[in-house]
């Protein structure tokens, strides 16, 4: 086929400097190990302060079927009731409620998300990362793109949408069918982009901001697809 080649070739990793490469890789590896563990909250909450913020944002759009391994029937039922996607939710009150601030709210938000398994060690080709300095906080920003497998339903499941539920979808373009339809609550593989603003402190880290974007699963752009096995000819 005819090809237009982008002037900037896509790179799997970018780090502003070698020190950040080491520090942020260590941070992400440890963070995801804890995130995937049964006691997610107990291990991670010490990294958050009373001013730290966390939110989840669901991008429910379906990629074209010609994108490699694209899930054409994605399930977002566990995320949409908590999603702070301002492209879909316009209610100021809802957006405020869906921004978790401080350890207590962040712990609740963590428990409302499915348990997961990332494959950082087993499949490093499945992840891309950019780390840049963030001088305004004397820290850095890490952006990780990749995928995870949902392994269990959330510890805190979304209650039915009764009146007074703070997570009712009252936004202009939101759709409650995501949270009420059992089919949309099945466990599956998801792609994600996660952005942390991290401040190194006393040999550890403080997370000032943590935004998790959950997307429909697709193969990525930065790694080659696995080779198709060539069938062995069978002797007549």
């Amino acid at each position: 086929d005819a090809i237009f080649t982008f002037p900037l070739k896509l790179q799997q990793f970018h780090f502003d400097n070698d020190q950040l490469a080491q520090t942020s890789t260590q941070f992400v590896t440890n963070f995801l190990n804890c995130w995937d563990s049964p006691n997610r909250c107990a291990q991670l909450l010490p990294l958050y302060t009373p001013q730290s913020q966390f939110s989840v944002c669901a991008d429910t759009s379906v990629p074209p079927s010609t994108a490699r391994d694209a899930d054409q029937n994605p399930a977002f039922g566990f995320y949409v009731p908590h999603s702070r996607n301002i492209n879909k939710v316009s209610s100021e009150k809802t957006l405020e409620q869906r921004l978790a601030t401080g350890q207590e709210q962040i712990a609740t938000a963590f428990r409302q998300l499915p348990a997961s398994r990332h494959a950082l060690q087993q499949d490093p080709q499945g992840y891309a990362m950019q780390t840049i300095e963030y001088p305004q906080v004397n820290g850095f920003m890490v952006v990780l793109h990749g995928y995870f497998e949902e392994t269990a339903k959330p510890e805190l499941e979304q209650q039915s949408s009764s009146s007074g539920n703070k997570y009712n979808n009252r936004g202009r373009r939101n759709n409650n069918s995501h949270s009420n339809n059992p089919a949309s609550n099945r466990l599956s593989k998801k792609s994600f982009d996660r952005t942390w603003v991290v401040v190194p402190m006393n040999g550890s880290f403080i997370i000032a901001s943590d935004i998790l974007v959950v997307r429909t699963y697709t193969g990525n752009t930065w790694s080659e697809p696995a080779p198709v096995p060539v069938p062995t000819p069978v002797a007549a």
Binding site: I3, F6, P63, T66, R68, T221, W222
Partner: peptide, 14 residues
């Protein structure tokens, strides 16, 4: 800015 998925029927090569 990162391109995270690519359709296989595109003429664009990353």
């Amino acid at each position: 800015y990162t391109m995270v998925y690519k359709p296989e029927d595109s003429l664009i090569d990353l």
